[in-house]
Design a protein around this nucleic acid. Structure first.
Lengths: 349, 349
DNA sequence: GTGAAAGCGCTAACAG
DNA sequence: CTGTTAGCGCTTTCAC
C-alpha cells in the first residue's frame, strides 16, 4: 500500500516467492499450486499492482495497442468509424491510438513513424495514402496493417470497403426510377478510387435508364459542407439545371441542400438530393436525407477482426472484404411527375 | 536494409561505435563529434531505424502517450474535443489513446487500469466519474491527470471547464430579452454539476427578468436526440406551453426541434430553442441553431497544456481554468412581439 | 511446483 | 569525445 508503483519484484517478495512464479500466475502459464496462486492474487489485489505492459512488450510480447490513421476525427463519418473500431478493439484487448492526418502525406509518414516507435501491434489505415512506399515499408518491417476503403492495386493487404460502384448505382437508380433524368453528381476527389467507383456506378445507372450523362454534371466537392455548397451553386448556375443530385458524402449533401435553400429552392420539391454514408447528420438535417448507408459498425468490426487475426496468427492470407451499401430513402428525394396532368406528385406507369 | 527491426545495437555496430554513442545522438545528450553524429544519423536513415519507445520507457523515460476518457467518441461534441486534444498533444509530442466509457463506471475503471498498465504519462478525463476513488488512486500513484468539465469538490486536480452558470444565464437572458416569459429548460442530468450550473444560470436570468420559474418547466433529457424529443413532447403536452426552451446541449436541442416539427409547430415561429455546445450540428440543422458556444478548441489546448506541464515539471500547483462561453445567435430563436400592435405573432400586456 | 538467470532495447552514470 | 556497465520490469528456459 506504500509503493507508488510496485513491480513484479515487490509482489514476489511480499508473497515470498520468485518473480517467475508471479509471472506465471499473471499469465496463467506453467503449473502453480492453487494455494500460492491465491496468495499471490490476493497480494496483487491488495497492492493494486498493475503489471507493466511496457516491460512485458520488451520481452517480445504484444503492446496490445494499434494505431488508427484517419483524415479527421472531428468528421462524423470518421468518428463513428473510430468508435466502432475502438469497441471491437476493446473486445480483443487492444487499445487504439488515433492519428488525424488531414490527408497530408507528411502527417501520414510522421504518424506511422511514431506508431512504429511505439511498437504498436498493427495499424488501421482509413486515410488517403498518396505514397505507397510507407505501406511497402510496413510490409517489409512485418508490421500488420489493414485498410479501410482504399484499394492499393500493387499491394497485398487486408482491406475492408463498401461496394462504391453499387452505392453510386443505387443512388442514381433511385433517382432515375423516380423520374429524374437530369441527375448531377458531386464527387469527392477523382483521384480516389472509391470516388471514381461511385461515379462509375452513377454513370452506369444512368445509362441503364437510357440517360446520356453529360460531363458538365459531374463536379468536384471534397469532404466539407462548404465544398458541397460551392459545387451545388455551380450546378444550379447551369442553364440546364439538374433536378436531382447525388452528393458523394453526407457533408456534401448537406452543403447542397443549404445551397439550394440559399437560392430559395426547395429540397426535394425543386431538386432532390441523395447523400452517402448515413452518418448521424443524415437524420438530423431537414429534410431527412435520403442516403446510401455504409455499414459503419460492420466496417469497424471487420477491419479490427482482420487485423487482430493477422497480429495473432501471422502469415495469414490477405483478404479483401467488401460490404454492400444500402439505400435509405428519407425525404430529400422526390418522385418527379412524369408526363401526366395530375396535380401533386406523380402516378403513371 | 535486411533487418526487420534493427536495434540500437545494430546501428552501433554498423557505425563502429557503442550503443551509448548512438543513444547520445538520438537524444542530443553528451558531446559527440560532428563527424560521428553525421555518420550515425546517416546509418539510422539508411536502415530506417525506429528507436523503441518501449525500451526507452522502461529505463524511466516517458511513453509519450496519454489516455483520453470520454463518454462516446461518436458524439460530435466529444469527437471535436478529442480532435483538438489530439492536435495539441501532437504539438507536444504525445499520442492519445481514446477510451469511450459510455459513462459506465466499470468501463471507467477498466480503462484506467489498462492505461496504468500501459504506463501512459497522463490521463485526461472528460467522462463522468461516479467514484472518486479511482482518481484518488491516480493521485496516490502519482499519475498526472486533468479533468474537463468536472468539478470534484474533494479533489485537487487540474480542471478546465466552461462557465456553465454563465452559459445558462446567457441562453435564458437572450430569450427573456426577446420577450419570452415562458421559458423551459431541458437539462442533461441533475447529478452533474455542469448541468446544475446551467439550470442555476437559467433560473437566475429568469429571476432577473422578473419571471418566476415554474418547476414544471425543467425537464430532464440526457445526451441524445431521442431524449430531447421526449422531453420536448412532455413540454408541449403542458396545458400552458412554453414559448421558448433552452436545451442543455445541441443534441437535445435538435431533438426538441424535431419534436416541435412532429407536432406541426414551427421553430422559431411557434417556439424558440437554444442549444449548448455549438457543435457542427448547430450549423447543419434547419433552422440554424442559436446556441451557447463552448470554446472547444481552447478547451483541448488548455487541458493538454495543463497535463503536459504536470507531466514535465511535476509538483505543479493544481489549477482550474474556466473558459467563458459565448452566445451565438442564429435562427432558432425569435423575438416575441412585445405589446405593440405589429403584424406578426402575439401581443398582450 | 518453484526458482535462478539471461535477455528484451535502451539510458545513464562513470571511466577513460 | 566515446565506451563499459549496470539496470529498467518482465518472460522464459532450464534446473531442482
Amino acid at each position: 500500500m506504500q509503493d507508488v508503483k510496485p513491480t513484479i519484484y515487490d509482489i514476489a517478495q511480499a508473497a515470498g516467492v520468485s518473480t517467475a512464479t508471479v509471472s506465471k500466475v499473471l499469465n496463467n502459464t506453467g503449473r502453480i499450486s492453487e494455494k500460492t496462486r491465491r496468495n499471490i492474487l490476493r497480494i496483487i489485489e491488495e497492492m493494486d499492482y498493475q503489471p507493466s505492459i511496457v516491460a512485458s512488450a520488451l520481452t517480445g510480447k504484444k503492446t496490445h495497442t494499434i494505431g488508427l490513421l484517419l483524415p479527421d476525427l472531428a468528421n462524423p463519418y470518421f468518428s463513428e468509424i473510430a468508435r466502432n473500431i475502438e469497441d471491437r478493439g476493446h473486445d480483443h484487448g487492444f487499445s487504439v491510438i488515433i492519428c488525424s492526418t488531414d490527408n497530408k502525406p507528411e502527417k501520414v509518414s510522421h504518424y506511422i513513424s511514431i506508431l512504429r516507435q511505439k511498437r504498436v501491434d498493427g495499424i488501421i489505415i482509413a486515410t488517403g495514402v498518396r505514397d505507397e512506399k510507407v505501406l511497402k515499408e510496413l510490409n517489409r518491417r512485418d508490421i500488420p496493417f489493414a485498410l479501410i476503403a482504399r484499394e492499393l492495386p500493387m499491394l497485398a493487404a487486408h482491406t475492408v470497403l463498401v461496394d462504391d460502384f453499387m452505392g453510386g448505382y443505387l443512388a442514381a437508380s433511385h433517382l432515375a426510377e423516380w423520374g429524374h433524368r437530369k441527375i448531377a453528381i458531386i464527387a469527392e476527389d477523382l483521384q480516389l478510387t472509391s470516388s471514381k467507383e461511385r461515379v462509375r456506378g452513377w454513370r452506369s445507372a444512368l445509362e441503364e435508364h437510357g440517360i446520356t450523362c453529360d460531363e458538365k454534371w459531374v463536379v468536384i466537392g471534397d469532404f466539407t459542407v462548404e465544398g458541397g455548397k460551392r459545387a451545388m451553386h455551380r450546378l444550379l448556375d447551369l442553364p440546364d439545371r439538374p433536378t436531382a443530385v447525388f452528393a458523394c458524402n453526407d457533408l456534401l449533401a448537406i452543403g447542397s441542400i443549404q445551397a439550394a435553400r440559399e437560392r430559395g429552392l426547395s429540397v426535394p420539391d425543386d431538386v432532390s438530393v441523395v447523400g452517402f454514408d448515413n452518418t448521424i447528420l443524415a437524420t438530423i438535417i431537414d429534410p431527412p436525407l435520403t442516403t446510401v448507408a455504409q455499414p459503419i459498425r460492420e466496417i469497424g468490426r471487420q477491419v479490427m477482426d482482420l487485423l487482430v487475426r493477422e497480429i495473432e496468427e501471422r502469415k495469414q492470407v490477405k483478404q479483401r472484404v467488401v460490404l454492400l451499401p444500402e439505400l435509405i430513402i428519407r425525404q430529400s428525394t422526390k418522385r418527379l411527375a412524369p408526363a401526366s396532368p395530375t396535380d401533386g406528385n406523380d402516378d403513371r406507369e
